[in-house]
């Protein structure tokens, strides 16, 4: 089954790089969307079906952690798979993100680590498989 994927990062070049990594990873993709912050991403999620969100944390307007909390609080969105793609290294914050059912990969990352994070997330089933 192909994924509809949303890449959320405030840096345009990084969104492109994450999108290229998705292509290189071999994950089946049906559509690829982009958002520049959590607020834009939430608006897009509410009008467009998305299976997997690749989420930066440090962003202006609405950061990734706030976005993730709002997704999990929304009955229509809470099953969305989310993988955090961030420079974050704080173990307490990473633990909080994982407790909200998110996968985590550290920047810089490889396409292989992206695939593994998605596979791990689907195996756990915390977000619900697409």
């Amino acid at each position: 089954m192909a994924f509809s994927i949303l890449v959320v990062d405030d840096n345009r070049l990084m969104r492109g790089m994450v999108a290229r990594s998705v292509t290189l990873s071999g994950l089946p993709v049906s559509s690829l969307h982009e958002a520049g912050d959590g607020e834009q991403a939430l608006a897009l999620l509410r009008r467009q079906w998305v299976d997997l969100v690749l989420l930066d944390i440090n962003m202006p307007v609405m950061d990734g952690e706030t976005f993730l909390g709002q997704v999990r609080a929304d009955a229509r969105l809470r099953a969305t798979l989310v993988v955090v793609v961030s420079t974050e290294s704080s173990q307490p914050r990473i633990a909080r993100l994982k407790a909200l059912g998110a996968g985590f990969i550290h920047k810089p990352f490889t396409p292989e680590s992206l695939v593994k994070a998605v596979q791990d997330l689907m195996a756990i089933g915390s977000g619900g498989a697409p």
Partner: peptide, 22 residues
């Protein structure tokens, strides 16, 4: 951004939370 995010844990360890500005 990525250099800063990767340097902070080297400087101070991974037990503390840091907020990075854009």
């Amino acid at each position: 951004n990525v250099i800063a995010g990767n340097l902070l844990p080297v400087l101070y360890g991974q037990d503390h939370e840091f907020h990075l500005c854009p």
